[in-house]
């Protein structure tokens, strides 16, 4: 038996998701935002785009790391964003002599990394250039994953690293190990504690929801840009709701 209050909350929650989805679908018809014109400049992602063009021209390697999120947990969302970005980055570097590599810290993410690599090569009609070793599970515990990803970036001489996924404080070891004179590390995660660590340790940290914007800035798909606009819309709605709630509480309307 569902209680009335939980039933109302379920309907409100579902309505929120449906409205979010509808806006994401409708907004592309109205406006498709473009980086530099409609999206505010994000230094980290601008540098990532620049590194991508340099990687293709100079024949250097890109390394994408997806963290240790479990696929049954909401914290994997940032790794899924990393996979979308990885698809775009691998497509762009498929022709390169030094193709991009993807590292992961769990079995499912390792499988998804390989799948993304394969489909990105297929999209560029370079299936023959795909090697399973480009997608690797580097360790199955937090520190073994960090050590393995760090070594993978070093061994393969990665010039640019993009870390997007679920990380803990061990991400500082990764960014430190990947650091070099001409390397760039752009890193984002959904963990608040790891974001604080990244602020100090990464070349270019992605703070807050910026990690979810990477797809839009890398043109990873048609809905990435509009989902950013939708997030902004709901963010303002939440801000208004919080401010409204505060005023109502201050006036003594609510107990």
């Amino acid at each position: 038996m569902i209680s009335l209050s939980s039933g109302i909350l379920s309907i409100v929650g579902m309505a929120f998701v449906v409205l979010f989805g509808l806006l994401m679908l409708v907004l592309p018809v109205v406006k498709q935002p473009r980086p530099g014109r409609d999206l505010r400049p994000l230094r980290a992602l601008s540098r990532l785009r620049h590194a991508l063009s340099l990687t293709v021209e100079a024949g250097t390697r890109f390394h994408i790391s997806l963290g240790r999120g479990e696929i049954t947990h909401p914290r994997t969302a940032s790794a899924f964003v990393g996979l979308s970005a990885a698809h775009r980055l691998v497509e762009a570097t498929a022709v390169s002599d030094r193709p991009a590599i993807i590292t992961a810290g769990t079995g499912p993410l390792g499988i998804l990394a390989r799948s993304t690599l394969r489909s990105a090569y297929a999209a560029e009609a370079y299936e023959s250039r795909y090697r399973p070793a480009y997608g690797r599970v580097t360790g199955l515990t937090p520190f073994s994953y960090a050590a393995g990803a760090m070594l993978a970036a070093r061994d393969d001489d990665a010039a640019a690293n993009f870390l997007s996924g679920s990380f803990g404080a061990e991400v500082a070891l990764m960014t430190d190990g990947m650091a070099g004179e001409n390397t760039l590390t752009v890193a984002g995660t959904d963990s608040v504690a790891a974001q604080a660590v990244l602020y100090a340790a990464a070349d270019e940290p992605l703070i807050g929801e910026e990690v979810f914007a990477s797809g839009a800035y890398l043109n990873a798909g048609p809905l990435h840009g509009t989902s950013l606009l939708t997030q902004d819309f709901f963010r303002w709605l939440l801000i208004l709701a919080i401010l409204g709630g505060t005023v109502v509480k201050m006036l003594g309307v609510l107990p």
């Binding site: 989805g21 929801e209 990435h224 997030q231 963010r235």
Partner: peptide
Amino acid sequence: GVALGTVATGLR
């Protein structure tokens, strides 16, 4: 912000 990003990713 992360929650909104997670909803957007899930819906995509």
